[in-house]
């Protein structure tokens, strides 16, 4: 999901000049973009050695941490925005981390692959797990250990008393606001503590 239009769609949700914490920041492209184009500052959190190095090369602040160990290093409301772009689906403690995201950030933004996108539904109807551009892995080697849908996230957010500020789907870099649960391969949520 590293394509530029997708990144820009998510970046638009981040107010200019925000102090940002990007959980699972990858090679730091998003933070780099936010710093250059939207006057933001902040830090990425990343586990992978190669990505940590890539961030250092870009000049993006990066903290090497395993998110499964939580966010105890970060104080309540210490960031304007906490991002989780394609991170949630890799976390064992996904629910805890969602709550932690809302605790540390005044605003949380989460993007993840929407399992209810229609091609995925079709694959399941045919009796097979979906393998698509967005979910390119076979069921036995996928790093996506949490597969959820747009609707599932709404339920989880409500359960944890998060107030959803904006929600839409992303498909081919375009925002999908009508029937996103069926029509978009990526779900995007912007929320705060309720």
């Amino acid at each position: 999901m590293s394509d530029r239009t997708t990144m820009q769609s998510i970046a638009r949700l981040v107010p200019e000049g925000s102090r940002v914490l990007d959980l699972g920041c990858g090679d730091g492209a998003m933070l780099d973009y936010l710093q250059r184009e939207r006057g933001c500052s902040g830090y990425g959190v990343e586990l992978d050695d190669g990505n940590v190095l890539a961030c250092a090369k870009r000049g993006v602040n990066v903290i090497q941490l395993n998110l499964d160990e939580g966010l105890t290093m970060f104080d309540d409301s210490s960031f304007d925005v906490v991002l989780q772009v394609d991170t949630l689906q890799h976390l064992r403690n996904a629910e805890t981390m969602l709550v932690e995201t809302a605790r540390v950030g005044r605003i949380g933004i989460v993007a993840f692959p929407n399992f209810a996108h229609w091609p995925n539904r079709l694959a399941i109807l045919r009796g097979r797990m979906p393998v698509t551009k967005r979910l390119p892995y076979q069921w036995y080697d996928t790093p996506n250990i949490r597969v959820g849908t747009f609707k599932d996230f709404e339920v989880l957010a409500t359960k944890n008393r998060l107030a959803i500020l904006d929600a839409f789907g992303l498909q081919n870099g375009q925002e999908v606001r009508v029937l996103p649960n069926a029509r978009a391969s990526t779900a995007v949520f912007k929320f705060e503590r309720g």
Partner: peptide, 19 residues
């Protein structure tokens, strides 16, 4: 990590790697 936290609390620029 204690040092990283103290720097984060003060909003200083910091990168941290655990090799």
């Amino acid at each position: 990590r204690e040092l990283v936290k103290a720097l984060l609390d003060n909003r200083h620029d910091v990168s941290y790697a655990e090799i």
